[in-house]
Design a protein around this nucleic acid. Structure first.
Length: 517
DNA sequence: TTCTCAGTTGGGAGA
DNA sequence: ATCTCCCAACTGAGA
Protein backbone atom coordinates (compact mmCIF):
# COMPACT_ATOMS: atom_id res chain seq x y z
CA UNK A 1 0.00 0.00 0.00
CA UNK A 2 1.19 3.51 -0.86
CA UNK A 3 0.74 5.90 2.03
CA UNK A 4 -0.54 9.41 2.21
CA UNK A 5 1.68 10.75 4.95
CA UNK A 6 1.99 13.82 7.16
CA UNK A 7 5.38 14.54 8.68
CA UNK A 8 4.77 16.88 11.59
CA UNK A 9 7.65 19.29 12.30
CA UNK A 10 7.78 20.83 15.79
CA UNK A 11 11.37 20.91 16.93
CA UNK A 12 13.68 19.10 14.51
CA UNK A 13 13.39 21.89 11.90
CA UNK A 14 15.80 20.17 9.53
CA UNK A 15 16.10 17.57 6.82
CA UNK A 16 19.43 16.08 7.96
CA UNK A 17 19.38 13.41 10.68
CA UNK A 18 15.61 13.32 10.64
CA UNK A 19 14.71 9.63 10.87
CA UNK A 20 10.96 10.25 11.18
CA UNK A 21 10.98 12.32 7.98
CA UNK A 22 13.05 9.66 6.27
CA UNK A 23 10.60 6.99 7.38
CA UNK A 24 7.70 9.05 6.03
CA UNK A 25 9.05 8.52 2.51
CA UNK A 26 8.87 4.71 2.68
CA UNK A 27 6.00 3.34 0.56
CA UNK A 28 4.71 6.85 0.24
CA UNK A 29 2.69 8.41 -2.58
CA UNK A 30 1.63 11.73 -1.10
CA UNK A 31 3.77 13.51 1.44
CA UNK A 32 2.68 16.55 3.49
CA UNK A 33 5.34 18.26 5.63
CA UNK A 34 3.48 20.29 8.23
CA UNK A 35 4.28 22.85 10.93
CA UNK A 36 1.41 23.93 13.18
CA UNK A 37 1.25 27.44 14.56
CA UNK A 38 -1.38 28.35 17.07
CA UNK A 39 -2.31 32.00 16.44
CA UNK A 40 -3.11 32.37 20.12
CA UNK A 41 0.48 31.60 20.97
CA UNK A 42 2.41 34.66 19.73
CA UNK A 43 0.34 37.08 21.77
CA UNK A 44 0.32 35.06 24.97
CA UNK A 45 3.36 32.85 25.17
CA UNK A 46 6.65 33.88 26.66
CA UNK A 47 8.44 34.20 23.35
CA UNK A 48 10.28 37.42 22.57
CA UNK A 49 10.50 38.93 19.12
CA UNK A 50 14.06 37.75 18.49
CA UNK A 51 13.03 34.12 18.85
CA UNK A 52 9.96 34.62 16.65
CA UNK A 53 12.23 36.02 13.98
CA UNK A 54 14.57 33.06 14.35
CA UNK A 55 11.66 30.62 14.03
CA UNK A 56 10.33 32.34 10.91
CA UNK A 57 13.77 32.17 9.30
CA UNK A 58 14.06 28.51 10.24
CA UNK A 59 10.67 27.74 8.69
CA UNK A 60 11.58 29.60 5.49
CA UNK A 61 14.80 27.65 5.26
CA UNK A 62 13.00 24.37 5.86
CA UNK A 63 10.44 25.23 3.17
CA UNK A 64 13.25 25.99 0.76
CA UNK A 65 15.03 22.68 1.51
CA UNK A 66 11.79 20.77 1.02
CA UNK A 67 11.18 22.57 -2.28
CA UNK A 68 14.55 21.36 -3.51
CA UNK A 69 13.09 17.90 -2.92
CA UNK A 70 9.98 18.81 -4.98
CA UNK A 71 7.97 19.20 -1.78
CA UNK A 72 7.09 22.14 0.44
CA UNK A 73 6.21 23.10 4.01
CA UNK A 74 2.60 23.69 5.05
CA UNK A 75 2.36 26.09 7.97
CA UNK A 76 -1.08 25.38 9.37
CA UNK A 77 -2.75 27.97 11.62
CA UNK A 78 -4.62 26.36 14.49
CA UNK A 79 -4.23 23.97 17.39
CA UNK A 80 -3.14 20.36 16.76
CA UNK A 81 -6.25 18.67 18.15
CA UNK A 82 -8.45 20.73 15.80
CA UNK A 83 -6.10 20.80 12.83
CA UNK A 84 -5.36 17.09 12.51
CA UNK A 85 -8.87 15.65 12.10
CA UNK A 86 -9.43 18.13 9.27
CA UNK A 87 -6.11 17.31 7.58
CA UNK A 88 -6.62 13.54 8.03
CA UNK A 89 -9.91 13.82 6.08
CA UNK A 90 -8.84 16.36 3.48
CA UNK A 91 -5.59 14.64 2.56
CA UNK A 92 -6.84 11.09 3.15
CA UNK A 93 -3.92 10.53 5.49
CA UNK A 94 -2.85 6.98 6.37
CA UNK A 95 0.37 7.70 8.24
CA UNK A 96 1.69 10.36 10.63
CA UNK A 97 5.38 10.70 11.49
CA UNK A 98 7.11 12.95 13.99
CA UNK A 99 10.15 13.29 16.23
CA UNK A 100 9.79 12.40 19.92
CA UNK A 101 9.59 15.46 22.18
CA UNK A 102 10.19 14.81 25.87
CA UNK A 103 8.78 18.03 27.37
CA UNK A 104 5.68 17.56 29.54
CA UNK A 105 3.63 20.00 27.46
CA UNK A 106 4.60 18.19 24.28
CA UNK A 107 3.95 14.75 25.71
CA UNK A 108 0.40 15.76 26.55
CA UNK A 109 -0.14 17.35 23.14
CA UNK A 110 1.27 14.33 21.32
CA UNK A 111 -0.82 11.88 23.32
CA UNK A 112 -3.96 13.77 22.22
CA UNK A 113 -2.89 13.73 18.59
CA UNK A 114 -1.97 10.04 18.71
CA UNK A 115 -5.43 9.24 20.07
CA UNK A 116 -7.00 11.24 17.22
CA UNK A 117 -4.80 9.47 14.69
CA UNK A 118 -5.90 6.08 16.02
CA UNK A 119 -9.54 7.11 15.74
CA UNK A 120 -8.92 8.00 12.08
CA UNK A 121 -7.05 4.79 11.38
CA UNK A 122 -3.80 6.66 10.85
CA UNK A 123 -0.55 4.80 11.50
CA UNK A 124 1.82 6.65 13.86
CA UNK A 125 5.60 6.50 13.56
CA UNK A 126 7.80 8.39 16.05
CA UNK A 127 11.60 8.51 16.17
CA UNK A 128 14.09 9.80 18.71
CA UNK A 129 16.39 12.41 17.18
CA UNK A 130 16.23 15.52 19.35
CA UNK A 131 18.41 13.97 22.05
CA UNK A 132 21.57 11.91 21.73
CA UNK A 133 20.02 9.01 23.63
CA UNK A 134 16.68 7.50 24.49
CA UNK A 135 16.07 9.24 27.82
CA UNK A 136 13.99 6.36 29.16
CA UNK A 137 16.88 3.99 28.52
CA UNK A 138 19.28 6.26 30.41
CA UNK A 139 16.93 6.36 33.41
CA UNK A 140 16.47 2.59 33.25
CA UNK A 141 20.22 2.04 33.26
CA UNK A 142 20.41 4.19 36.40
CA UNK A 143 17.92 1.99 38.27
CA UNK A 144 14.88 4.00 37.29
CA UNK A 145 16.13 7.38 38.51
CA UNK A 146 17.52 10.33 36.59
CA UNK A 147 21.23 10.74 37.47
CA UNK A 148 21.76 13.83 39.62
CA UNK A 149 25.48 14.29 39.10
CA UNK A 150 27.38 14.62 35.86
CA UNK A 151 29.90 11.94 36.80
CA UNK A 152 27.11 9.47 37.50
CA UNK A 153 25.48 10.44 34.21
CA UNK A 154 28.72 9.77 32.34
CA UNK A 155 29.07 6.38 34.00
CA UNK A 156 25.59 5.45 32.79
CA UNK A 157 26.32 6.66 29.24
CA UNK A 158 29.54 4.65 29.19
CA UNK A 159 27.46 1.54 29.81
CA UNK A 160 25.21 2.39 26.87
CA UNK A 161 27.95 3.38 24.42
CA UNK A 162 28.19 6.25 21.93
CA UNK A 163 25.03 7.86 20.52
CA UNK A 164 23.56 6.62 17.25
CA UNK A 165 25.02 7.99 14.06
CA UNK A 166 22.96 10.61 12.24
CA UNK A 167 20.93 9.56 9.20
CA UNK A 168 21.56 11.42 5.94
CA UNK A 169 19.05 13.92 4.57
CA UNK A 170 16.52 12.63 2.02
CA UNK A 171 17.65 12.90 -1.60
CA UNK A 172 15.78 13.33 -4.88
CA UNK A 173 16.25 9.58 -5.24
CA UNK A 174 14.34 9.02 -1.95
CA UNK A 175 11.59 11.26 -3.35
CA UNK A 176 10.98 9.08 -6.43
CA UNK A 177 7.28 8.36 -6.69
CA UNK A 178 6.52 10.77 -3.85
CA UNK A 179 4.68 14.02 -4.49
CA UNK A 180 3.28 16.86 -2.43
CA UNK A 181 -0.06 17.93 -3.91
CA UNK A 182 -0.45 21.66 -3.41
CA UNK A 183 -2.91 24.15 -4.87
CA UNK A 184 -2.77 27.90 -5.36
CA UNK A 185 -4.98 28.46 -2.33
CA UNK A 186 -2.60 26.37 -0.20
CA UNK A 187 0.09 28.81 -1.11
CA UNK A 188 -1.92 31.64 0.42
CA UNK A 189 -3.23 29.72 3.39
CA UNK A 190 -0.20 27.73 4.38
CA UNK A 191 2.74 30.06 3.85
CA UNK A 192 5.41 30.94 6.43
CA UNK A 193 4.04 33.79 8.58
CA UNK A 194 5.53 37.25 8.91
CA UNK A 195 6.27 38.99 12.21
CA UNK A 196 3.34 41.31 11.44
CA UNK A 197 0.97 38.38 11.23
CA UNK A 198 2.26 37.23 14.61
CA UNK A 199 1.46 40.62 16.09
CA UNK A 200 5.12 41.52 16.63
CA UNK A 201 6.42 45.06 16.26
CA UNK A 202 9.44 44.59 14.01
CA UNK A 203 10.57 48.23 14.33
CA UNK A 204 12.17 47.31 17.68
CA UNK A 205 14.43 44.67 16.12
CA UNK A 206 18.19 44.87 15.99
CA UNK A 207 20.33 43.41 13.18
CA UNK A 208 20.24 39.66 12.54
CA UNK A 209 23.31 38.26 14.32
CA UNK A 210 22.21 34.63 14.30
CA UNK A 211 20.01 33.88 11.30
CA UNK A 212 17.65 30.96 11.86
CA UNK A 213 17.62 27.77 9.84
CA UNK A 214 19.35 24.52 9.02
CA UNK A 215 21.59 25.90 6.26
CA UNK A 216 23.03 28.53 8.57
CA UNK A 217 23.37 25.92 11.33
CA UNK A 218 25.41 23.61 9.11
CA UNK A 219 27.48 26.50 7.79
CA UNK A 220 28.25 27.61 11.30
CA UNK A 221 29.09 24.05 12.34
CA UNK A 222 31.50 23.74 9.39
CA UNK A 223 33.10 27.05 10.23
CA UNK A 224 33.86 26.00 13.80
CA UNK A 225 34.80 22.40 13.03
CA UNK A 226 37.51 23.67 10.68
CA UNK A 227 39.25 25.22 13.68
CA UNK A 228 40.78 21.90 14.73
CA UNK A 229 43.06 23.24 17.46
CA UNK A 230 40.36 25.42 18.91
CA UNK A 231 37.93 22.49 19.03
CA UNK A 232 40.49 20.11 20.54
CA UNK A 233 41.59 22.53 23.24
CA UNK A 234 38.10 23.90 24.01
CA UNK A 235 37.46 24.19 27.74
CA UNK A 236 34.25 25.96 28.64
CA UNK A 237 35.45 27.56 31.90
CA UNK A 238 38.33 29.14 29.96
CA UNK A 239 36.02 30.94 27.53
CA UNK A 240 35.07 34.51 28.26
CA UNK A 241 31.58 35.64 29.30
CA UNK A 242 32.24 39.19 28.20
CA UNK A 243 34.12 38.95 24.91
CA UNK A 244 32.91 41.46 22.32
CA UNK A 245 32.47 38.61 19.85
CA UNK A 246 31.06 35.36 21.31
CA UNK A 247 33.87 33.14 22.64
CA UNK A 248 31.82 29.99 22.05
CA UNK A 249 30.08 28.58 18.96
CA UNK A 250 26.56 30.02 19.47
CA UNK A 251 25.19 26.81 18.00
CA UNK A 252 22.75 26.53 20.93
CA UNK A 253 19.79 28.27 19.20
CA UNK A 254 20.19 25.90 16.27
CA UNK A 255 20.29 22.85 18.51
CA UNK A 256 17.30 24.14 20.48
CA UNK A 257 15.09 24.33 17.39
CA UNK A 258 16.65 21.21 15.92
CA UNK A 259 18.06 23.13 12.93
CA UNK A 260 21.22 21.24 13.93
CA UNK A 261 21.05 17.65 15.14
CA UNK A 262 22.85 17.03 18.43
CA UNK A 263 24.02 13.69 17.01
CA UNK A 264 25.39 15.31 13.87
CA UNK A 265 27.24 17.78 16.11
CA UNK A 266 28.51 14.98 18.38
CA UNK A 267 29.84 12.85 15.52
CA UNK A 268 31.43 15.81 13.74
CA UNK A 269 33.31 16.53 16.96
CA UNK A 270 34.35 12.87 17.17
CA UNK A 271 35.83 13.22 13.66
CA UNK A 272 37.77 16.33 14.62
CA UNK A 273 39.02 14.71 17.83
CA UNK A 274 40.03 11.48 16.07
CA UNK A 275 43.71 10.68 16.63
CA UNK A 276 44.40 13.98 18.40
CA UNK A 277 44.86 15.02 21.98
CA UNK A 278 41.65 16.77 22.99
CA UNK A 279 39.76 18.09 25.98
CA UNK A 280 37.10 15.91 27.58
CA UNK A 281 33.73 16.25 29.31
CA UNK A 282 32.53 18.12 31.23
CA UNK A 283 34.51 21.06 29.82
CA UNK A 284 34.91 19.97 26.17
CA UNK A 285 32.45 20.58 23.34
CA UNK A 286 31.35 16.94 23.66
CA UNK A 287 30.85 17.80 27.30
CA UNK A 288 28.50 20.64 26.39
CA UNK A 289 26.27 18.28 24.43
CA UNK A 290 26.28 15.92 27.39
CA UNK A 291 25.20 18.74 29.71
CA UNK A 292 22.21 19.24 27.45
CA UNK A 293 21.48 15.54 27.65
CA UNK A 294 21.98 15.56 31.42
CA UNK A 295 19.30 18.20 31.93
CA UNK A 296 16.97 16.64 29.38
CA UNK A 297 17.17 13.37 31.31
CA UNK A 298 16.58 15.08 34.66
CA UNK A 299 13.67 17.09 33.26
CA UNK A 300 12.12 13.92 31.87
CA UNK A 301 12.58 11.90 35.05
CA UNK A 302 11.64 14.49 37.68
CA UNK A 303 8.06 15.78 38.02
CA UNK A 304 7.47 19.54 38.24
CA UNK A 305 10.99 20.18 37.04
CA UNK A 306 10.35 23.83 36.18
CA UNK A 307 8.93 24.67 39.62
CA UNK A 308 10.16 24.76 43.19
CA UNK A 309 7.02 23.35 44.79
CA UNK A 310 6.38 19.70 44.16
CA UNK A 311 9.88 19.27 42.75
CA UNK A 312 11.56 16.56 44.82
CA UNK A 313 15.14 17.57 44.01
CA UNK A 314 14.62 21.29 44.60
CA UNK A 315 15.51 22.94 47.90
CA UNK A 316 12.50 24.88 49.18
CA UNK A 317 13.62 28.45 49.72
CA UNK A 318 11.73 31.42 51.19
CA UNK A 319 12.43 33.68 48.22
CA UNK A 320 11.33 37.29 48.54
CA UNK A 321 8.77 38.93 46.33
CA UNK A 322 10.27 42.23 45.22
CA UNK A 323 8.73 43.55 41.99
CA UNK A 324 10.97 46.64 41.95
CA UNK A 325 14.18 44.65 42.21
CA UNK A 326 12.93 42.09 39.69
CA UNK A 327 12.10 44.85 37.21
CA UNK A 328 15.50 46.46 37.76
CA UNK A 329 17.20 43.16 36.98
CA UNK A 330 15.02 42.42 33.96
CA UNK A 331 15.40 45.93 32.56
CA UNK A 332 19.14 46.26 33.10
CA UNK A 333 19.08 48.97 35.78
CA UNK A 334 20.52 47.28 38.87
CA UNK A 335 23.34 49.81 39.04
CA UNK A 336 25.92 47.03 38.56
CA UNK A 337 27.34 47.65 35.08
CA UNK A 338 28.42 44.03 34.54
CA UNK A 339 24.92 42.75 35.33
CA UNK A 340 23.18 45.49 33.36
CA UNK A 341 25.42 45.01 30.32
CA UNK A 342 24.62 41.29 30.25
CA UNK A 343 20.89 41.89 30.56
CA UNK A 344 21.13 44.46 27.77
CA UNK A 345 22.92 42.03 25.47
CA UNK A 346 20.31 39.39 26.32
CA UNK A 347 17.42 41.64 25.35
CA UNK A 348 19.03 43.07 22.25
CA UNK A 349 20.74 40.02 20.80
CA UNK A 350 19.00 37.01 22.34
CA UNK A 351 22.22 35.29 23.31
CA UNK A 352 24.64 35.67 26.24
CA UNK A 353 27.58 33.50 27.26
CA UNK A 354 26.94 30.68 29.69
CA UNK A 355 29.07 32.29 32.41
CA UNK A 356 27.25 35.57 31.91
CA UNK A 357 24.07 33.61 32.61
CA UNK A 358 25.73 32.36 35.81
CA UNK A 359 26.53 35.89 36.92
CA UNK A 360 23.04 37.33 36.40
CA UNK A 361 21.28 34.20 37.71
CA UNK A 362 23.33 34.14 40.90
CA UNK A 363 22.70 37.88 41.31
CA UNK A 364 18.92 37.52 40.98
CA UNK A 365 18.65 34.57 43.34
CA UNK A 366 20.98 33.45 46.14
CA UNK A 367 23.69 36.05 45.54
CA UNK A 368 21.95 39.37 45.88
CA UNK A 369 18.25 39.94 45.22
CA UNK A 370 16.88 36.76 46.81
CA UNK A 371 14.20 36.45 44.14
CA UNK A 372 12.93 33.04 43.01
CA UNK A 373 14.73 31.33 40.18
CA UNK A 374 11.32 30.76 38.59
CA UNK A 375 11.14 34.52 37.90
CA UNK A 376 14.52 34.43 36.21
CA UNK A 377 13.48 31.36 34.27
CA UNK A 378 10.52 33.30 32.81
CA UNK A 379 12.72 36.16 31.64
CA UNK A 380 15.23 33.81 29.99
CA UNK A 381 12.35 31.86 28.44
CA UNK A 382 11.21 35.06 26.76
CA UNK A 383 14.52 36.53 25.68
CA UNK A 384 16.90 33.69 24.83
CA UNK A 385 17.06 32.43 21.25
CA UNK A 386 18.17 29.10 22.70
CA UNK A 387 15.56 29.01 25.50
CA UNK A 388 15.01 25.34 26.14
CA UNK A 389 12.56 24.06 28.75
CA UNK A 390 14.82 21.45 30.33
CA UNK A 391 18.07 23.42 30.20
CA UNK A 392 16.49 26.60 31.44
CA UNK A 393 14.86 24.96 34.45
CA UNK A 394 17.93 22.83 35.21
CA UNK A 395 20.44 25.63 35.02
CA UNK A 396 18.32 28.00 37.12
CA UNK A 397 18.13 25.34 39.82
CA UNK A 398 21.88 24.85 39.52
CA UNK A 399 22.77 28.53 39.82
CA UNK A 400 20.34 29.22 42.65
CA UNK A 401 21.84 26.19 44.50
CA UNK A 402 18.37 24.67 44.56
CA UNK A 403 19.46 21.40 42.96
CA UNK A 404 22.53 19.74 41.39
CA UNK A 405 24.89 22.37 42.83
CA UNK A 406 25.03 22.88 46.58
CA UNK A 407 28.07 24.97 47.41
CA UNK A 408 25.94 28.02 48.00
CA UNK A 409 28.75 29.82 49.80
CA UNK A 410 30.46 30.25 46.42
CA UNK A 411 28.91 33.47 45.22
CA UNK A 412 29.66 35.30 42.00
CA UNK A 413 30.67 38.90 42.56
CA UNK A 414 28.92 41.31 40.18
CA UNK A 415 32.09 43.41 40.36
CA UNK A 416 35.04 41.01 40.45
CA UNK A 417 33.87 38.23 38.16
CA UNK A 418 33.79 40.19 34.91
CA UNK A 419 37.17 41.80 35.58
CA UNK A 420 38.95 38.48 35.16
CA UNK A 421 38.33 38.46 31.40
CA UNK A 422 37.68 42.15 30.68
CA UNK A 423 39.79 44.40 32.85
CA UNK A 424 39.02 47.54 30.86
CA UNK A 425 35.28 46.98 30.79
CA UNK A 426 35.02 47.13 26.99
CA UNK A 427 32.02 44.81 27.13
CA UNK A 428 30.25 47.13 29.56
CA UNK A 429 31.02 50.13 27.35
CA UNK A 430 29.62 48.34 24.31
CA UNK A 431 26.26 47.54 25.88
CA UNK A 432 25.99 50.52 28.25
CA UNK A 433 27.31 53.44 26.16
CA UNK A 434 26.34 55.88 28.90
CA UNK A 435 29.36 54.56 30.82
CA UNK A 436 31.82 54.62 27.96
CA UNK A 437 33.85 57.54 29.22
CA UNK A 438 34.41 56.07 32.67
CA UNK A 439 38.04 55.12 33.41
CA UNK A 440 38.68 51.38 33.75
CA UNK A 441 39.33 51.83 37.45
CA UNK A 442 35.67 52.65 38.09
CA UNK A 443 33.87 50.96 35.21
CA UNK A 444 32.66 48.04 37.35
CA UNK A 445 31.78 50.34 40.29
CA UNK A 446 30.90 53.77 38.89
CA UNK A 447 29.32 54.86 42.19
CA UNK A 448 32.79 54.87 43.70
CA UNK A 449 34.09 57.42 41.22
CA UNK A 450 34.61 60.92 42.63
CA UNK A 451 32.10 63.55 41.50
CA UNK A 452 34.72 65.17 39.26
CA UNK A 453 35.35 61.92 37.40
CA UNK A 454 31.62 61.35 36.97
CA UNK A 455 31.28 64.86 35.55
CA UNK A 456 34.19 64.29 33.19
CA UNK A 457 32.61 61.03 32.05
CA UNK A 458 29.35 62.86 31.42
CA UNK A 459 27.48 60.42 33.60
CA UNK A 460 26.30 61.19 37.10
CA UNK A 461 25.50 58.09 39.12
CA UNK A 462 21.98 58.37 40.53
CA UNK A 463 20.94 60.59 37.64
CA UNK A 464 22.25 59.23 34.32
CA UNK A 465 22.96 55.70 35.57
CA UNK A 466 21.38 54.06 38.63
CA UNK A 467 23.04 53.67 41.98
CA UNK A 468 23.50 49.99 42.93
CA UNK A 469 20.21 48.62 44.25
CA UNK A 470 21.94 46.50 46.91
CA UNK A 471 25.24 46.41 48.75
CA UNK A 472 26.74 43.20 47.42
CA UNK A 473 29.22 42.52 50.21
CA UNK A 474 26.70 42.71 53.02
CA UNK A 475 23.69 41.20 51.25
CA UNK A 476 25.59 38.22 49.87
CA UNK A 477 26.86 37.29 53.33
CA UNK A 478 23.35 37.57 54.71
CA UNK A 479 22.01 35.44 51.85
CA UNK A 480 24.51 32.67 52.51
CA UNK A 481 23.04 32.44 56.00
CA UNK A 482 19.49 32.39 54.60
CA UNK A 483 20.56 29.61 52.26
CA UNK A 484 22.06 27.70 55.16
CA UNK A 485 18.72 27.96 56.97
CA UNK A 486 16.82 26.76 53.90
CA UNK A 487 19.10 23.71 53.62
CA UNK A 488 18.74 22.98 57.34
CA UNK A 489 14.96 22.76 56.91
CA UNK A 490 15.26 19.92 54.42
CA UNK A 491 13.78 16.71 55.68
CA UNK A 492 16.38 13.93 56.08
CA UNK A 493 13.72 11.51 54.78
CA UNK A 494 13.78 13.29 51.45
CA UNK A 495 17.39 14.30 51.14
CA UNK A 496 18.64 10.73 51.16
CA UNK A 497 16.34 9.89 48.28
CA UNK A 498 14.94 6.78 49.96
CA UNK A 499 11.49 8.22 50.46
CA UNK A 500 10.23 10.04 47.44
CA UNK A 501 6.83 11.59 48.11
CA UNK A 502 4.05 10.68 45.68
CA UNK A 503 3.68 12.72 42.52
CA UNK A 504 2.44 16.22 43.09
CA UNK A 505 3.22 16.21 46.79
CA UNK A 506 4.77 19.44 47.89
CA UNK A 507 7.82 19.33 50.08
CA UNK A 508 5.86 21.63 52.31
CA UNK A 509 4.40 18.49 53.81
CA UNK A 510 7.71 18.27 55.68
CA UNK A 511 6.22 20.70 58.07
CA UNK A 512 3.84 17.98 59.11
CA UNK A 513 6.75 16.71 61.15
CA UNK A 514 6.14 19.72 63.35
CA UNK A 515 3.15 19.08 65.61
CA UNK A 516 0.11 20.81 64.20
CA UNK A 517 -1.49 23.22 66.57
C1' DT B 1 25.30 2.97 59.18
C1' DT B 2 28.94 5.93 58.74
C1' DC B 3 32.52 7.69 56.50
C1' DT B 4 35.10 9.72 52.66
C1' DC B 5 35.54 12.06 48.47
C1' DA B 6 34.61 14.87 44.63
C1' DG B 7 31.84 18.34 42.75
C1' DT B 8 31.80 22.07 34.89
C1' DT B 9 33.84 27.43 35.71
C1' DG B 10 33.97 31.87 43.50
C1' DG B 11 36.67 35.39 45.91
C1' DG B 12 40.52 37.01 48.02
C1' DA B 13 45.08 36.85 50.25
C1' DG B 14 49.56 35.77 49.89
C1' DA B 15 53.62 33.23 47.98
C1' DA C 1 51.06 35.77 35.94
C1' DT C 2 50.06 31.50 38.33
C1' DC C 3 49.55 28.79 42.08
C1' DT C 4 47.88 27.37 46.87
C1' DC C 5 45.22 27.89 50.66
C1' DC C 6 41.38 29.46 53.21
C1' DC C 7 36.62 30.91 53.69
C1' DA C 8 32.63 27.72 55.84
C1' DA C 9 30.70 23.59 54.91
C1' DC C 10 26.78 21.89 51.15
C1' DT C 11 25.37 17.45 48.53
C1' DG C 12 25.29 12.69 46.01
C1' DA C 13 27.47 8.52 45.50
C1' DG C 14 30.04 4.77 46.74
C1' DA C 15 32.85 2.07 49.85
Amino acid sequence: MKHSCIHWFRKGLRVHDNPALKYALHDCKHMYPVFILDPWFPKNAQVGINRWRFLIEALKDLDSSLRKLNSRLFVIRGVPREVFPRLFEEWKVTRLTFEVDSEPYSQKRDKEVMDLAKQHGVEIITKISHTLYNLERVIEENNGKAPLTYVRFQTVLNKIGPPKRPVPAPTREDMKGVSTPSSETDKENYGVPTLDELGQDSTTLGPVLYPGGEQEALRRLDEYMQRTNWVCSFEKPQTSPNALKPSTTVLSPYVKFGCLSARTFWWRLAEVYHGKKHSAPPVSLHGQLLWREFFYTAAYGIPNFNKMEGNTICVQVDWDSNPEHLAAWREARTGFPFIDAIMTQLRQEGWIHHLARHAVACFLTRGDLWISWEEGQKVFEELLLDADWALNAGNWQWLSASAFFHQYFRVYSPIAFGKKTDKNGDYIKKYLPILKKFPAQYIYEPWKAPKSIQEQAGCIVGKDYPRPIVDHDTISKKNIQRMKAAYAKRSPDLSDGSLIPPLGTSLRCNFLRVPLV
